[in-house]
Design a protein around this nucleic acid. Structure first.
Lengths: 212, 212
DNA sequence: ATCGGCATGTAAACGGTTACATGATTTA
DNA sequence: TAAATCATGTAACCGTTTACATGCCGAT
C-alpha cells in the first residue's frame, strides 16, 4: 500500500485539506495513483493519529472552514524509510487485454468500438499531459527538447497544478526546489511515453481486429 | 472486477484445475492479470455454483486427483455479455512514480539502485516475452516483422504456454483458432511495447537522478 | 530423511468502491 | 430556483493479500 505515501508526497509539495487532496488525486498525482475522498479522509485521520501529519483550522470567507494538513517530522521520516525499502515491480491489471484474448471466442469485430473508445481516452490524456508539460516545463535554452509530435486533442486540457510548495520540516539531504521540478517532469514524461505507447498499441490491436 | 472473466478466457483457451490456473496466472495470463490460488479457488467455486463452469474429476498417476474445470454455456454467455459492455480505461497505480516524486524531499541519489532494480526486472520480462514470441509466433513469410532490437536478457526465459485449447460450447460467431492465435499475439506485442517503453523511461529517470 | 512440487483449502485482516448524508455558498 | 462547488463525513460491501493448514508423491 502506498496511499499514505502518495498523500505525504502531495502534502510535501503543498499542504492542503482532505478535499483539496481529493481533487489533486483527480489531477497530477491522480495520473499514477487514484483515491476517492472517502478513502483520503479515513487515511488522513489515521495519519493524524499516528502523528504523520498535523492539521490546522483555516477559516475562509464565503466557504466552509477547512482543515489544512501538513507533514510532520514523523511523516517525513515514514516517507523516507519507505523510499529506502525496495518495492516489487508493479503488478498490472489490464482488463482490455483480457477482453481482447476473450474476443477470440466471441465476435472479434464487436470489440472495435470499445478499443476505439480506449484509444480516444488515451489520446485525450496525452493531449492533457502535453498541455501541462508546455505550461509547467517550457522548453529551455538548448539541449532539451520536451517531446515530439502529438495527437489531435478533444477534451478540455487542465493543469497538473504543481506549484513549488514548501515542505514543513527540513529535508535530510539534497531536496532542492530544482530537484522537485525535475523529478515531477520526469514522471510526467513517463506518463507521456505511456500514453504514446498505448495509442500505438491500440492501433495495432485495431488493425488486427479488422482482419476478422 | 474481471477475475471471473480472466478465468473464463483461460479455461476457454484450455481447461484446467484450480492449481493449473494459479500457475497460468504466474505466466501468460498473469502478465496482465494477477491472482493467487486462494482467490482462484474461491471464485472457481462460485462460478461452479452459478453454472459458469463444470468440473470433472481426473485421476492422475503419481499425483493427487484434480478437478478439471471447463467453461459451460452459461459461462460462455457471461463472458460474451461482459465483452459487450464498455469498461473504464484503466486506473493506474505506479508506486515507483510516487517514490520518484517523493525523492525530491529525501536524497534523490538514494533511489538509483531501486530504479536500476526495476529496470532490470523490466528487461528480464522483455527478454521473456521476446523468447515466447520467437517460440509461439515465428516470423512468417513477408510483410510481418515480429519486433525490433532488444535488451540483453538475464533471467531464464519461460514459455507463455498458449496451446490452442478447445472451447466446450460452440462460440456465437467468428471464433477461429486463427483469431485466437492472432489476438494472443497482439496482446503479447502490447506487453513487449510496454516493457520497451518502461526501460526507456527508467533510463530517462536514471539520467535525471544522476544530475543530483 | 528432507525438500520441492502437486493439489486444495480456511480464516483474518486490510484496502478500495459505492451509496448515502449533510449543509453552506456561488453561479447560471 | 436549480445546479455546481466547497467541505466532511458514515456504513456496508466486496475484492485482495497474507498467514496458516493438510497430505501425497518423487527426487536428492
Amino acid at each position: 500500500m502506498a496511499l499514505e505515501h502518495a498523500i505525504l508526497v502531495s502534502l510535501l509539495e503543498k499542504p492542503g485539506s482532505g478535499y483539496e487532496l481529493a481533487r489533486r488525486f483527480d489531477r497530477s498525482i491522480g495520473y499514477f495513483w487514484t483515491a476517492t475522498h472517502q478513502q483520503i479522509y479515513r487515511v488522513l485521520k489515521r495519519m493524524e493519529n499516528d502523528g504523520w501529519v498535523a492539521a490546522r483550522e483555516v477559516a475562509q470567507q464565503g466557504r466552509p472552514d477547512k482543515r489544512e494538513y501538513s507533514v510532520a517530522d514523523l511523516g517525513h521520516a515514514a516517507l523516507s524509510s519507505w523510499l529506502h525499502e525496495p518495492i516489487e515491480p508493479e503488478t498490472v491489471r489490464h482488463d482490455l487485454a483480457v477482453k481482447i484474448r476473450g474476443a477470440a471466442f466471441d465476435d472479434p469485430a464487436g470489440l472495435v468500438r470499445e478499443v476505439e473508445r480506449h484509444r480516444q481516452a488515451h489520446a485525450d490524456r496525452l493531449a492533457h499531459y502535453l498541455a501541462g508539460e508546455g505550461r509547467d516545463f517550457p522548453p529551455q535554452s538548448p539541449a532539451e527538447a520536451p517531446s515530439s509530435p502529438a495527437e489531435a486533442p478533444s477534451s478540455p486540457a487542465e493543469a497538473p497544478s504543481s506549484p513549488v510548495g514548501e515542505g514543513s520540516s527540513p529535508p535530510p539531504s539534497g531536496a532542492s526546489p530544482d530537484a522537485e521540478r525535475e523529478l515531477q517532469h520526469v514522471v510526467l514524461r513517463g506518463g507521456i511515453a505511456y500514453e504514446r505507447m498505448m495509442i500505438a498499441w491500440l492501433d495495432d490491436v485495431l488493425a488486427t481486429l479488422h482482419r476478422f
